[in-house]
Amino acid sequence: MSATFKSIRALQPLLDRVLVQRFKAETKTASGLLLPSSATSSPLPEATVIAVGPGAPNKDGAIIPVSVKAGDRVLLPGWGGSPIKVGEEEYHLFKDSEILAKIQE
């Protein structure tokens, strides 16, 4: 199940949710050969953070902020996330705790 929106600006994640856009797999090699869709069907584990929620409350009610910010590159699991379609672009919502790592450049 995926949601569809007209603009990504219409979407603000809640609590500890993180909106990401996965990197697209290359459909052409460096030498110019076209790759078949079967070779690029699995999603890449890297993504760019688009927006983050304010954080989730702990058992005492204090807000624990999200560990990433918009613009960060992150490593994602091969499963999970809620897909969101905006025009032809696809995004995913993950919980902060599901993100595996932040990629330092």
Rank of each mutant, 00 (worst) to 15 (best):
M1R: 06
F5Q: 02
K6L: 01
R9K: 13
Q12S: 13
P13K: 06
P13N: 07
Q21D: 00
R22A: 02
K24M: 12
A25P: 12
T29K: 07
T29A: 03
S31D: 10
G32V: 12
L33Y: 14
L34S: 05
L34Q: 05
L34I: 03
P36A: 09
A39E: 11
A39W: 09
S41D: 03
S41T: 04
S42I: 13
P43G: 02
P43E: 03
P43L: 05
E46M: 13
V49T: 02
A51Y: 01
G53C: 07
P54N: 06
P54L: 05
G55V: 14
A56D: 04
A56V: 11
P57G: 05
P57Q: 14
D60E: 13
D60C: 07
I63T: 15
I64T: 15
I64L: 15
P65V: 04
V66Q: 02
S67V: 04
V68A: 05
V68C: 12
K69G: 06
K69N: 10
A70E: 10
G71A: 02
R73D: 00
P77H: 01
G78P: 07
W79N: 08
S82P: 00
P83H: 15
I84E: 00
G87T: 12
G87D: 10
E89G: 00
Y91I: 01
Y91F: 14
Y91G: 00
H92I: 03
L93D: 00
L93V: 11
D96V: 07
I99F: 01
A101W: 11
K102E: 14
I103H: 04
Q104C: 00
